[in-house]
């Protein structure tokens, strides 16, 4: 139950950050918070599985995928920062 509350809190904070922060770095950080919350939720569910190795395996895979995603996100961020674009309202040119 504790872990459920924790994960929901993390996801909520993260989502709020993703939707409201204007700083791209902060948005990426919020995403990581969200992902962390979801992974906590997954881990807590996986812990209840009768064969522990299965739950652990799935959790590790999801964690690894999250890491890969973070890498791509940071790479994109670097590419944008090099063009002096660090805020979300600076990337609103494509529309319609």
């Amino acid at each position: 139950m504790t872990s459920l509350v924790l994960s929901c809190t993390l996801i909520g904070i993260g989502l709020y950050g993703v939707l409201t922060r204007r700083d791209l770095v902060a948005v990426l950080a919020s995403i990581e918070v969200m992902l962390g919350g979801a992974q906590v939720l997954l881990a807590s569910y996986a812990a209840g599985v009768s064969v522990p190795a299965v739950g652990e395996g799935i959790t590790v895979v999801v964690l690894a995928t999250g890491a890969a995603e973070a890498a791509i996100g940071l790479a994109l961020l670097v590419a944008l920062v090099r063009r002096n674009k660090t805020r979300t309202d600076q990337i609103e040119e494509v529309r319609g």
Partner: peptide, 17 residues
């Protein structure tokens, strides 16, 4: 409807959520 596609990625994300 096209007005929703205003280029703001965060409103897109909000729509998604």
């Amino acid at each position: 409807l096209a007005g929703t596609m205003n280029g703001d990625g965060q409103s897109y994300t909000a729509l998604l959520a």
